[in-house]
């Protein structure tokens, strides 16, 4: 077990410390299954769960199964939860960190491919995209439309095409771990953080993944947010462009 925590990576023969960050809000129905999958599919990754103020048994399940967990006393939302995970990764010297949502929509079998892509392309971020091959759960029509709009906006601002900027299934290198640990957008952080990365000359690449429909729990984007979300994202991405030139 101790040996398998370390992996020879690429041709460099270097040992990489890798971490799976699992943001979890009320995921008691799906999280055990996810732990089991991670153990089978990615035994060389350490795991940290971030319990985002769940009201159900998420925390207890993590503790009972020996999964190290960062327990947030109050609900911070996905941005604050992921930032906590990145802070943990930064503090503990991890060189690779990957977000795998606690609801089970991200399939750990893709972690290997993502890692390979990150190393071979020397990228800062690898995003698992639902739309590159169009397989698996494709989200609702309304959301697809919104994602296409965001994708276009990011292309307009940065000149680079990201097909699935809202995907939370993303792996980052040490440089981004450190940056995200100190500064990460709070609500709906995914598109904003990609846009920021690209505009500052970072490299983000995508690989095709199949996502699953969430087994349980609810999306962080509620029905009332369907108007607010695109407006906020537009403002955030455009403002991002003006900031820290």
């Amino acid at each position: 077990m101790v040996e398998s925590d370390r992996t020879r990576a690429g041709s460099e023969n270097r040992i990489l410390k890798k971490l799976v960050i699992i943001p979890a809000y009320n995921e008691e129905k799906s999280i055990l299954n996810l732990f089991r999958e991670l153990r089978e599919q990615a035994p060389d990754f350490d795991i940290i769960a971030v319990n985002d103020g769940s009201e159900d048994g998420t925390l207890r399940l993590c503790r009972e199964n020996g999964i190290p967990v960062l327990d947030l006393a109050v609900n911070l939302g996905i941005g604050g939860a992921m930032q906590t995970g990145y802070r943990y990764a930064a503090l503990n010297g991890y060189e690779i960190a990957v977000q795998v949502d606690g609801d089970g929509q991200h399939d750990p079998t893709f972690l290997r491919e993502m890692l390979k892509k990150l190393l071979s392309e020397n990228a800062d971020m690898v995003i698992g995209s639902r739309f590159l091959e169009g397989k698996g759960y494709q989200s609702t029509a309304l959301r697809r439309w919104g994602i296409r709009y965001l994708s276009g906006l990011i292309r307009l601002v940065t000149g680079i095409r990201i097909t699935d900027p809202t995907s939370g299934f993303r792996m980052v290198n040490r440089r981004l771990i450190e940056r995200f640990a100190s500064d990460y957008p709070q609500d709906y952080p995914e598109p904003e953080s990609v846009a920021g990365l690209l505009r500052q000359g970072g490299k983000a690449v995508e690989i095709p993944v199949r996502m699953r429909e969430r087994g349980s729990g609810s999306s962080s984007i509620g029905p009332g947010a369907s108007i607010y979300y695109p407006l906020k994202m537009t403002a955030a991405i455009l403002l991002e462009r003006m900031r820290r030139q």
Binding site: M1, V2, R36, R39, E64, N65, G66, I67, P68
Partner: peptide, 14 residues
């Protein structure tokens, strides 16, 4: 429900 060697033994009781 304790893990003897911190996080190294993660998930052994899954």
């Amino acid at each position: 429900d304790r893990e003897p060697k911190g996080e190294k033994s993660k998930g052994e009781k899954l």
